[in-house]
Structures are given as structure tokens and as C-alpha cells.
Computed example of a mutant assay.
Amino acid sequence: MAEHLSEVDKLRAKLLQNIEADDETATTYFSNVVREDVLLRIEKVIGNIVSSLSREEAPVLLLNSRSQWSSVRFEKPVGLLMTSDCTVTTLRSNGSLSLNKFAVILKALSTIYNLLQNDSYATKRDMYYNDPQLFGSQKILDTVVDDLSCMLKVSRRSLHVLATTKGLIIGDLCYLEEDGTRVDCSFTAVPVCSNVRGIISVTSSAKFVLVIEKDATFQRLLDDDFCTRFYPCIMITGKGVPDINSRLMVRRLWETLQIPVFALVDADPHGIEIMCIYKYGSVSMAFEAANLTVSSMLWLGLLPSDIERLGVPHDVLIPFTEADKRKMNSLKKRPYIFCHPAWEREITLMLQWNQKAEIQSLASIAPHFLTRVYLPNKLCHGGWI
């Protein structure tokens, strides 16, 4: 046990070093800025548009490309970061295909400017219903808000725009929201805060955070009293591909509590990708990676090698689709996979089998195998409980 504790202490020290390295990167590349500074950045954009009009020229906006791997670089302590020389798209006000988006951006900028002036906040949903006919869909507005955040080089919170949350959290955790509301996650699962950066007085004695891919698995662990059995700990789910608030909360817990963060995902391409989003970020949000990623996150399960080791029945395994194969081959080429030889072996094993498995497949061994055998063995082996 002493040897285990020594290794735990070493890893915790490493986690703290990673946090400090992350904070330095965040400061140099992308950080929250004061309200007045954001107002000035917006005024500069509008000033350029007015100057173009005064010269009888069609105004343009320059947007960083947020969808190309060529626009990001990988740094292991942080994750995927947008390059300084990323591809830039010119959005023209006189283009038949770009005119509507140009108008949507100006409307969004106007709304954000008013929010900043009044020092108030709004959700993206609130913004959409302010002019649904212009915005067209919530998805279009969501993309525009992220484009503006990237263009102005500020976080979404600095724009005073909040996202509607979908994640859930439970465990040994209490905190105060910005308005003074006390949130206690100890007894029941609560929605992840929609203003994570505004929370204060975070208190917890948790030994680890377990990030769960799917709500179904999260609910199963709730039914089996996972948090009680492994008290003190924290359990959180983003219900699939995580929203920004869920990622911000995991990051906040990691840097505040300085405890290990584990990922429990399906043994399939999408599960692995979701874990990588939490750990290293995504291409589309690479401009804010330093505020979102948890580079020390550990892949607890379900590992493809676990399927063979535990003798999971073949009839509960799911054959790969062509889309699964494409996704897995794409994952193999990503820069962060090369940093993890063990991950490469797991991915290769899954490709060889041409099959995938959901976490629920462990129930085929025994109804409570996940919570009473699999997770205890994984956590005990690492010396975390």
C-alpha cells in the first residue's frame, strides 16, 4: 500500500505541474479579459466596417477557420491549440452566400455589446429568440457566437453569453454560484452550472472525479449508489459529446481540487473521441483549449483489452459499421494518439476484432459487475481508494 501511495503522490505532483503549465499557456494565448477591453475590441470591428462604408467599399470580416486540422497544433500539456497562422476566411457583406451570415454576426455583436454595456448576461437561447427569423436556427447562432469568441480572442463568458447546460453532477461537492446560491451535489444529481467561471467557495474532500460518457451509465451508477460506495468522489456526465459547461466544470474541478480525473466511456470510436475532447479538446474549440482541457485525464475504461480479459460474451459485442472504421482510422492519425502507445494498442485491437462494446455489456457477466467488481478493481489497482 505504501508503494501505491507513493505513486499516487507522484502523480498528484505531476497533475499540479500540468495545471501550472496550462495556466501559463492560457495567460499567454487566451484569457478572460475585462469588460471594457471586450467593448473596445467590438468597437474596433465596427469601426473598420464604418471606415469601409465611408470609402464606398463593401465591408468584410476575417474569421479564423475552426474546422481544419491544419489550423491547430498539439501540445501535450494542454491539447489542441489554434496556430497563430491558421487559415482565415474572408466574409464579404456583398456576397450572395455570405450576406446573411454577415448580418447575423452584426446582430450578435450588437446584442453582445448591449450585454457588456449593461453588465448583464444572456444564454444563447435567449439571444436566438431575440430574432429567430434572422438567426434561422439555434445551431447557426451557436456557431456565430464561437466565431466571435475566436475572432475577438476572448472566452464566451467574456462576451457575457452563457450556454444552456445539459450535464449532470453528483458527489462530495459544494459551491456558491455567482448570485450567492449554495449548491450541494452530495445527495442528488444536479445540472452543471451554466456559469462555471462564476462559481466560488468550492469545497470537496473527493479523491477523484469520474467523467462518464453517457447518461444511461451515469443513471446506472446512481442506482447502484456508486458515490456512496466510493465516498468521497465526484461523478459527472456530459450526456454524450460534452457541452462547454460540462468541460468547464471538469476543468474547474481538476485545477481547484488537484485530484485525478478518470474517463469511463464505451469501447468504441465515439467513446474514445469523447474522452479525447475532455482530455485534449476539439478542433472547433481549439482557440479556447487552455480553459477547457484536462490533459492528465486517465482512460479508466471500458478498454478493448478488458473485453477479452474479462471474457465478455461475443453476442453482446456490436460489429463495426463503415462509419466506425472511418472514425477509428481517423483517430489513429491524430497527434495525441502517438503520445500514448497503450492507446494505439487498444485501437489496433479493436480494429482487428472489427467490433465494439458498450459499458452496459459488462452486465452480461453479472448485473452489478460494473460497480461491484470492474470499477473497484480499477480504482484499487491504482491506489485511489
Rank of each mutant, 00 (worst) to 15 (best):
S6Y: 08
S6I: 09
V8W: 11
D9N: 11
L11N: 11
R12D: 07
L15Q: 11
E20W: 00
D23S: 13
V34W: 10
R35M: 05
R35L: 12
I42W: 07
E43C: 06
I46G: 00
I49N: 02
S52Q: 13
S54T: 13
P59Q: 06
P59I: 05
V60C: 09
S65F: 00
R66F: 05
S67G: 12
Q68C: 09
W69S: 11
K76V: 02
K76P: 04
M82E: 14
T83F: 00
S84R: 11
R92E: 13
N94Q: 12
S96K: 14
S96N: 12
S96C: 10
S98N: 10
S98W: 11
S98P: 09
A108Q: 08
I112H: 07
N114D: 14
L115G: 07
L115I: 06
D119Q: 08
Y121V: 09
D126E: 11
D131S: 08
F135T: 06
F135Y: 10
F135G: 03
K139Q: 15
V144P: 03
R157W: 04
V161W: 07
L162R: 07
A163H: 09
T165S: 14
G167W: 00
I170S: 02
I170L: 10
V190I: 13
C193Y: 00
I199F: 04
V202D: 11
V202E: 12
V202A: 12
A206F: 00
K207N: 14
F208K: 05
F208I: 04
V209Y: 06
A216W: 02
D223H: 14
D225H: 15
C227K: 03
R229Q: 14
F230M: 04
P232F: 06
P232M: 06
K239E: 11
K239C: 10
P242L: 03
P242E: 08
P242V: 05
D243S: 02
R247I: 08
L248Y: 06
M249N: 06
M249W: 05
V250R: 01
R251S: 15
L253I: 14
W254N: 14
T256Q: 11
T256I: 08
A263V: 00
L264W: 03
D268L: 05
D268P: 05
P269T: 02
H270I: 14
G271Q: 02
I274W: 08
M275K: 08
I277M: 06
I277A: 02
K279Q: 13
S282R: 12
V283E: 01
A286H: 04
E288G: 08
N291I: 09
V294Y: 02
S295L: 01
S296D: 11
L303N: 01
I307F: 03
V312R: 00
H314L: 15
V316A: 05
E322A: 13
K325A: 10
R326Q: 12
E344F: 03
R345S: 14
E346D: 05
T348L: 12
L349A: 04
L349W: 01
M350Q: 05
Q352N: 12
Q355H: 11
I359H: 05
A363L: 07
A363V: 12
I365E: 02
P367F: 07
R372Q: 15
L375P: 01
P376A: 02
P376V: 02
H381G: 15
W384G: 01
I385C: 09
